[in-house]
Simulated assay, not measured.
Amino acid sequence: MKHQFTAQIEKDRETGLYTGFIPNLPGAHTQGETLDELYLNLRDVAELCLEECTEEELNQLPEFIGFQQVSVGA
């Protein structure tokens, strides 16, 4: 079965590493020195997380809707 996920990606200011996580897949988080490396690492970690899920857990994964920007202050 093919799954498609959306990952949140950030760049750590201290280390310069890219970090990513898949919000609706518990345990799916990783890092990489480049965006290409991060992409491959995210694929690997997603596959590992899916292997650990039962059929029932797979059917109950939350549906990712999106991100919303929120402005605060002046």
Rank of each mutant, 00 (worst) to 15 (best):
G20K: 04
M1P: 07
I65H: 14
L38E: 04
D12S: 06
E14H: 08
V70R: 12
H29P: 01
P62A: 10
Q4Y: 11
I22C: 05
N24F: 09
Q60M: 11
G66Q: 03
A7Y: 04
L40D: 04
A46L: 05
L48V: 15
P26I: 14
Q8L: 14
R13Y: 02
T15G: 02
E56G: 07
N24P: 05
Y39V: 04
A28K: 12
G27R: 08
D44M: 03
D44W: 02
L25A: 11
E63C: 13
K11W: 00
F21Q: 04
T54S: 15
G16N: 08
I9W: 01
E47G: 08
E37H: 03
E33M: 07
L42C: 01
E55A: 15
P23T: 06
G32A: 06
A74E: 15
L58G: 13
L40I: 03
D36L: 12
E52D: 13
E57H: 08
K11Y: 03
F64L: 08
R43G: 00
R13Q: 12
E55V: 14
F5V: 00
L35I: 13
R13P: 13
V45H: 03
L50K: 11
L58A: 12
I22S: 05
A7W: 04
E52T: 09
E37T: 00
R13M: 07
A7G: 06
A7R: 05
G66S: 09
P62G: 08
T15W: 00
